[in-house]
C-alpha cells in the first residue's frame, strides 16, 4: 500500500514537472477541448513561471500567517493574555469567513493592484488553522509536565521554548500545512487583481470560452496542492523525529 502511494506520488510529480517544462508536448491531449482553432495550451506566458510565482505568493503569505498566528496564540494562552482569547478568536474567524474575493476588493483601493492585495487576502485566510492548532497544541500540554517545569525553576520563557512549543509542534505544523494547502487553491484568485499566478490561465480560458485552459490551470493547481500536502506531511514527520516529539 505504501509503495503504491509512493509510486503514485512520484508519477504525479513527474507528470506535473513534464507538463510545466514542456507544455506544448501535451497539446494533442487538450486539443479536443478547444474550438475554432483556439490554442490548446496557454501561450501568453510560461506555465512554469506562473506556477512558481503562485507558490512564492503562497509561501510568503503562509510565513506571515504563521508568525502572526503563532505569536498571537502564544500571547492569548499566557495567563496575562487569557482575556484576549475570545477577541482574537473572533478576529481570526472573521479572517476566515470573509471571502478572499471580498478582501481583494477592499484591499485593491488601499494598496493597489498586484501581489500586495493577494498577500493580504491569503494571509487573512490562512490565519485560522494555524492559530487554532497552536492553541490546541499549547493547551494540550499535560498539566503535570507544566507544573514540573515550573517546579524545576524554568522561567516562563524557558518553559515556553523548551517544553510547551516542542510539545505543541506537531499540531502547529499540521496547522501550517492546512493553511498552505488551502491557499494554493485560493491564490488563483489573485490573478483577478493582476498578481502573477495560474489564475491567469483560468481567467484567459473563461474569457475566451476555452475549456482546455480552464482545465489545465485547475489541474496544475490541484496537483500542486496535493503534492505539497504530501511533502509537507513527510517533512513534518522528519522534523518531529529530529525534535524527539512523537
Amino acid at each position: 500500500m505504501a509503495t503504491l502511494a509512493r509510486g503514485l506520488r512520484v508519477a504525479a510529480f513527474a507528470l506535473l514537472t513534464a507538463f510545466l517544462v514542456f507544455p506544448q508536448r501535451f497539446a494533442p491531449l487538450f486539443a479536443p477541448l478547444t474550438e475554432y482553432g483556439a490554442p490548446p495550451i496557454y501561450d501568453q506566458g510560461s506555465l512554469l513561471g506562473l506556477a512558481l510565482a503562485q507558490l512564492g505568493t503562497v509561501f510568503l503569505a503562509a510565513a506571515s500567517s504563521t508568525i502572526v498566528a503563532v505569536t498571537l496564540a502564544i500571547l492569548v494562552t499566557r495567563r496575562s493574555g487569557a482575556e484576549f482569547l475570545p477577541l482574537s478568536r473572533t478576529l481570526v474567524n472573521v479572517g476566515q469567513t470573509f471571502p478572499p474575493v471580498a478582501v481583494l476588493a477592499v484591499a485593491v483601493p488601499l494598496v493597489g493592484f498586484g501581489l500586495k492585495p493577494t498577500l493580504i487576502a491569503l494571509f487573512a485566510y490562512g490565519l485560522l488553522p494555524i492559530f487554532e492548532n497552536t492553541i490546541s497544541g499549547l493547551q494540550s500540554c499535560p498539566q503535570s509536565v507544566l507544573e514540573a517545569a515550573d517546579g524545576m525553576g524554568m522561567s516562563p520563557g524557558q518553559r515556553l521554548w523548551s517544553v510547551e512549543l516542542p510539545l505543541a509542534l506537531p499540531l502547529i505544523l499540521e496547522g501550517i500545512r492546512l493553511s498552505v494547502v488551502i491557499n494554493v487553491g485560493t491564490a488563483t484568485l489573485g490573478s483577478t487583481v493582476a498578481a502573477k499566478g495560474l489564475g491567469e490561465v483560468i481567467i484567459a480560458g473563461l474569457l475566451s470560452n476555452n475549456t482546455a485552459l480552464i482545465l489545465q490551470g485547475g489541474l496544475v493547481t490541484g496537483l500542486m496542492a496535493m503534492l505539497l500536502y504530501d511533502s509537507l506531511a513527510a517533512l513534518e514527520r522528519r522534523l518531529l523525529r529530529f525534535a524527539h516529539v512523537v
Binding site: 499535560p142 503535570s144 509536565v145 507544573e147 514540573a148 525553576g153 516529539v245
Partner: peptide
Amino acid sequence: APLLRRKIGYVIQGYGLFPH
C-alpha cells in the same frame, strides 16, 4: 521564584517527566 526553585527539589504525583 525560578532561582529559589532550582535549589529545591520537587516531585509530583504524575512525575511530569518531559515526554520529548
